[in-house]
């Protein structure tokens, strides 16, 4: 979806998304990391399974809800990626207690 402009900042932060390793620059949000890796789809809805991706990037729309380090329904646009973070996209209905 997006690409980084060339700059001096190195992609020194490493996280995993659905088990795949991504490197991002410090300060980038999890939602930005998804979009920069070509993942338009952040989740599938609980109601119909329809695909959704980040829409507002400012914490208003709740379309970018993902599981971060085992905690579900986190707003990916409001959380900065950190080293070792484990992100899972929420596809369809979530289960209580599912990590």
């Amino acid at each position: 979806m997006f690409r980084r402009r060339p700059s001096d900042a190195a992609a020194t932060v490493t996280l995993t998304v659905d088990g795949e390793t991504l490197s991002v620059r410090p300060g980038e949000s999890v939602a930005a990391a998804l979009l920069l890796s070509g993942r338009a789809e952040a989740r599938a809805t609980a109601v119909s399974g329809a695909p959704r991706g980040p829409y507002c990037m400012m914490g208003v729309c709740f379309e970018c809800l993902v599981s971060i380090d085992g905690v579900g329904n986190r707003q990916a646009c409001m959380v900065e990626a950190t080293d070792g973070m484990r992100v899972e996209r929420q596809m369809g209905v979530r289960r209580i207690g599912a990590a």
Binding site: M1, F2, R4, G27, L35, M57, M58, C77
Partner: peptide, 17 residues
């Protein structure tokens, strides 16, 4: 997405389409 959302991508991650 919203145009504002794309602008946030630019401001915070230096990202363009």
């Amino acid at each position: 997405m919203g145009a504002g959302a794309a602008q946030i991508m630019l401001k915070t991650a230096g990202a363009v389409p």
